[in-house]
Design a protein around this nucleic acid. Structure first.
Lengths: 215, 215
DNA sequence: GTCTATAAGAGGATAGAC
DNA sequence: GTCTATCCTCTTATAGAC
């Protein structure tokens, strides 16, 4: 890509400011409650100007999601290069980062039910490419972690992948933060524990163990 | 309470039909995308008539939530009486039921971010009473399960409670169902496994185990 | 209490001047 | 490309007759 003129650089900076505002508002209020007026007000420009950069509210949300996926890809690449980590530790690091972003109020919240938004995302090649790239990289780690016995090999890899994805919108984070009884790091450590170790205690066997196929 | 006249019985039946429609629409579209017009259409009455029974859209959602909590309380009472189950198994049964309700399309979805809705719920005594009752009962099971070593005693009970609550709106359920690769029972069994056992594999120790406080 | 009709307002998107 | 002003649709909620 060419560098672009000074004027183009200014435009890109403005678009970055828009995406940043969208990202923050999506994290704070969610897609439905975020108004385009609020975005324009936060950026400090007129609403009509927004529509010169992005053709719809859904496009604004897609741009924010692309930004998050780019940051995730950068982290994944960094972790990929660290030879001191195995796949499970890398996945845990990604999960931790996801929670940190959410607690920092920077994780855009997109309702899974909104079909208009979903259609726009599924039609957005830049978004889909990044999503598939992240899924492929994390999926490879999952399969390797299962083969090494560090992750539960009894579950389909996609179940583990979706479970990790879901940490990005886990409502438990917000509830615990609102309770004001824990620091952000404590919350993250506890939820990493429930995610990877589960809720079960250390006592593995009981008298009823032989009865059923699973406890 | 008195039985009420025949006419009052008819009204109660109509209100039950309204709440049922609200419950279904909340599960399908979520609170924001559910319109009062759609509720009226599903029940087969005029919108103005709805407002004779419930004074706001938020009240409609609260009524649906109260219905779910009542059903949960009924299940909890039944489980309480079964002496063959320990506390962990009871919690697992509640979690399983929660997921079954969601997969059946009968779990109302309320966005945690909507402040108007949240205010209405927090001002609704009938809702709050039931919510606290459920929390007290499940909380007692959690503490007992921790004391028995069947649940992780290293985590605050509220963390376990919220984690179980969150299964009611776990997006992984819907994603796996949409993938059409699993039956409902398979999905529930897999997610019960990730919830109680976590994502970790069977290999508990590694060479790096002694290094940090936790893996 | 049920209906039809409508008020009242929010919010996404655009027109047209500059 | 940025602005002001506006359109238009959707949605909550209510008025008023029966």
């Amino acid at each position: 890509m060419a560098r672009g003129s000074f004027r183009e650089q200014v435009l890109l900076a403005r678009e970055a400011a828009i995406v940043s505002a969208v990202n923050r508002l999506l994290a704070e209020k969610g897609f439905d409650a975020m108004t385009v007026d609020a975005v324009a007000a936060e950026v400090g420009i007129a609403k009509a100007s927004l529509y010169k950069h992005f053709k719809s509210k859904e496009d604004l949300a897609a741009a924010a999601m692309i930004g998050v996926l780019d940051r995730a890809l950068a982290l994944i690449e960094t972790l990929q290069k660290d030879p001191s980590l195995d796949e499970r530790e890398r996945l845990k690091a990604v999960t931790r980062w996801t929670m940190q972003v959410q607690l920092a109020g920077e994780m855009p919240a997109l309702p899974a039910q909104n079909s208009a938004l979903r259609s726009a995302l599924m039609a957005n090649k830049a978004y889909l490419d990044r999503l598939m790239q992240v899924s492929d990289l994390l999926g490879a780690w999952i399969v390797a972690g299962q083969a090494a016995g560090r992750l539960d090999a009894g579950l389909p890899p996609e179940v583990l992948l979706y479970t990790i994805y879901a940490r990005a919108c886990d409502p438990v984070l917000g509830v615990l933060k609102a309770s004001a009884n824990f620091t952000d790091d404590q919350i993250i450590d506890m939820l990493l524990s429930t995610c990877f170790h589960g809720l079960d205690g250390a006592v593995p066997k009981t008298a009823s163990h032989a009865a059923g196929q699973a406890t």
